[in-house]
């Protein structure tokens, strides 16, 4: 029972982390990032491969975060910068393209097979009377610590303040002297770091593989349920998704894992199309 809860909390953390990446990027650049799963697993592959080359787990994680930073900047600079301010479907299609490219790169660079990311720790951790699977413990701690760090950055630092300003009014931010491109670039980098870490932690729990980019779909569903522009919403919605998946796998049939969250999403979209915590987009005078 405790293990089941832990599994849920670990998945919850990973989806929430990935979802926060999607929401951050959506808020500042109004681009719905379909490719977050691919980005996560790509960075996961970087970590897995560097462990295969003999790097210890912590160093491999740091190295993969470096890769995530570079990837975030490159994606913003070459793909997103030019379409900011365009209608939303343009950015959406670009991220579909990015997903395809990353998929190809994962096959070319890493072979696209199943690779584990071993943390090099014993299989079980004993806390008091209970034995817990270490990978889940690591994933839980890693994900929730990162979420806390991002929340602190977003709420308490100048960068977070500027991101929130750009998220609300791009024009006014620039009029106040904010370099909007720089702020959006940084939000993409933070988004990629969050996605990358989620990918690494997912790989640490099970393995990275091309099919593992389905975590992006779970995260996207969390964002849609929570409301695309609400960090709080995505964290709460990720719990709903993770719990639905875990319970379905355990009590119904593991093959239906992806159906449960989608069913919840459908209900939410009918009742509250803007999500549980999202704001209704106002209709602007043109």
């Amino acid at each position: 029972m405790v293990a089941l809860v832990l599994t849920t909390v670990a998945s919850w953390g990973i989806y929430a982390l990935l979802g926060i990446g999607i929401v951050l990027v959506y808020r500042t650049s109004r681009v719905l990032n379909i490719a977050s799963g691919e980005m996560a697993i790509f960075i996961g592959y970087v970590a897995a491969t560097s462990i295969q080359y003999g790097l210890p787990f912590p160093v491999a994680v740091l190295f993969s975060m470096g890769a995530a930073t570079v990837l975030g900047f490159v994606i913003f600079w070459f793909a997103i910068r030019g379409v900011m301010g365009e209608p939303p479907h343009v950015g959406l299609m670009i991220t579909v393209g990015i997903a395809v490219i990353l998929n190809g790169l994962m096959i070319v660079l890493f072979g696209g097979g199943m690779i584990a990311i071993p943390a090099g720790l014993p299989a079980f951790t004993t806390i008091g009377q209970v034995q817990l699977p270490t990978p889940d413990v690591v994933a839980t701690i890693g994900a929730w610590f990162s979420i806390a760090v991002i929340a602190v950055i977003y709420r308490l630092t100048n960068l977070g303040l500027q991101m929130r300003a750009v998220a609300e009014r791009v024009t006014l931010s620039a009029q106040r002297g904010l370099n909007v491109d720089r702020t959006v670039a940084l939000s993409w980098i933070v988004g990629l770091l969050a996605a990358g870490l989620a990918g690494v932690l997912h790989g640490e729990r099970s393995f990275v593989a091309l099919s593992a980019s389905a975590i992006g779909i779970s995260a996207l569903i969390s964002c849609l349920i929570g409301g695309m522009d609400s960090l709080k919403g995505v964290v709460i919605a990720a719990l709903i998704v993770a719990a639905a998946e875990t319970l379905t796998a355990r009590y119904i049939d593991p093959r239906y894992v992806l159906i449960a969250p989608v069913a919840i999403l459908l209900v939410i979209l009918i009742v509250r199309p803007w999500g549980l915590f999202g704001t209704v987009e106002e209709i602007r005078r043109v």
Partner: peptide
């Protein structure tokens, strides 16, 4: 410095944060 006709403050930020944005941006 430009005070626009509409959309002149950040609605989702507090008064203090509005001022902070200006202070940190320049």
């Amino acid at each position: 410095a430009f005070v626009p006709e509409r959309d002149k403050v950040f609605d989702t930020l507090t008064v203090r944060e509005n001022l902070e944005v200006a202070l940190t941006a320049t």
